[in-house]
Amino acid sequence: MNATVPDAQVGPRPALVSWFDHHRRAAVQSFLRLWREPIQSLVTCLAVGVALALPAALWALLQNVEAVSGSVQTAARFTLLLDQNTPFEVATQLAAELEGQANIDDVETVDRADALKDFAYGIGLNELMDNLDENPLPHLLHLHPDKNLSSAELDALFISLSTLESVDQVVFDTQWQARLGAAIATARRLTAGVGVLMVLGAALILGNTIRLGIEARREEITVIKLIGGGDGFARRPLLYSGLWSGAVGGLLGAVLVALLFGFLAGPADELFTLYGSDQTVSGLGFKGAFGLTVAGGLAGLVSAWSTAFIHLRRIQPR
């Protein structure tokens, strides 16, 4: 045992360099620590993943609905109910005139007899036709306006169609579009609200895990403080374990959403087809998955920081 002091000139590196270096090592060690207790880490990350998957899935679903509603909207259609006693020839003539207008794409004439047949078939009552003495329906014109018309131009077209002679009534259902728009807006709010709650939930789950981590490392933190380590030094590994758990949780959440959408794809695509859209259901995508991972990481970081802030101060060497 000798007490000579070799290489006494070697000292600590500049503060910034060692700060970065400690960050790097804390990041690596916290990540490895996740794998040291795989089951517990998996449960924590999965809890975060499930919490994030719900709002993410809602959001992705909403994106799909909006895309479909967009393509339905372009297929706007006027239905012109002609006067009851208008002959079919007048109807076809009117159709030809209207088709010549620049703001109208095409016009389809429906004979009142066919209209009744379609109606009866549509509601599944073929016998209806036999029981009616008289056809209550007039001849119809289905009119598709130009796809590029604004809603103001559509309104103007509606008015001009209503004033036409021999037209009894113009049906242009803008209301269902307004309803759909409002429903989407509501769903979007709901998604945002649920999103905030679930991210908060994820942060609380992580906060609790970090708190347990602090308790498990109480001895280490005490020793660090005894020999001159500050709160920052003790906090660093905790921040990174929050960051990693959150990010892995977000990634797992993205995987869950992908599985969910895979599960939905069959019936959802069929539903879209039934609404006359050739769109197929699309999930979060790479960007969305990346965003969810980043969101998870941020939630983890914030929750670790606040938990460490509260609990590290309480641990003082005795």
Partner: peptide, 17 residues
Amino acid sequence: ALPLDIAGFHPRDVGRR
């Protein structure tokens, strides 16, 4: 090594010390 990590020594110097 803990006090050296806290003080911010280079890993190479940590090993030697």
